[in-house]
Design a protein around this nucleic acid. Structure first.
Lengths: 73, 73
DNA sequence: GTGTGACTCAGAGTCCGTA
DNA sequence: ATACGGACTCTGAGTCACA
């Protein structure tokens, strides 16, 4: 289980469903667009507090961001 | 939602249900008792990879460690 | 059997620019 | 609108001695 990639996939999918851009999410979560990009591409290893902040930023539960999706990489 | 305390409560509860001491969990997870203590007391802000590591070492899903419990602090 | 403070070092997260 | 890179600061990872 690659947690970075799992969170990245979940995040990118949910964000797109919400219709928000990385820039908009970054502003709401008080983070940078570059950092959001790093999360979605699986390069970053966010803390649980950051996870919660970004989940809240587009109105989903932080639990959804860590739910396994069968990809298993 | 205080994520540190939430994870701490979840971890402590699951650990006690299993009947193991912090020392025993630490040994299984190849970590120190002090580190486990820091998680349970909400002093640490673990990354998602650390979260996954301790969950796995303890035999529960990482999802269980972040599930809200109604405490809301 | 558990919690605290101090520690080293790697990485979280920033800002700049750029493509 | 997104991703990459360097240089930067601050905090998390993980430990030890001790309360």
């Amino acid at each position: 289980m690659n947690m970075r990639k799992l969170v990245g996939r979940n995040f990118a999918r949910l964000r797109k469903e919400s219709g928000l851009s990385q820039e908009q999410v970054a502003e709401r979560a008080d983070l940078t667009q570059q950092y959001i990009s790093g999360i979605e591409t699986g390069k970053r290893n966010p803390t649980i507090e950051t996870l919660y902040a970004i989940a809240k930023a587009f109105g989903v539960s932080h639990v959804e961001l860590v739910l396994p999706d069968g990809h298993d990489d």
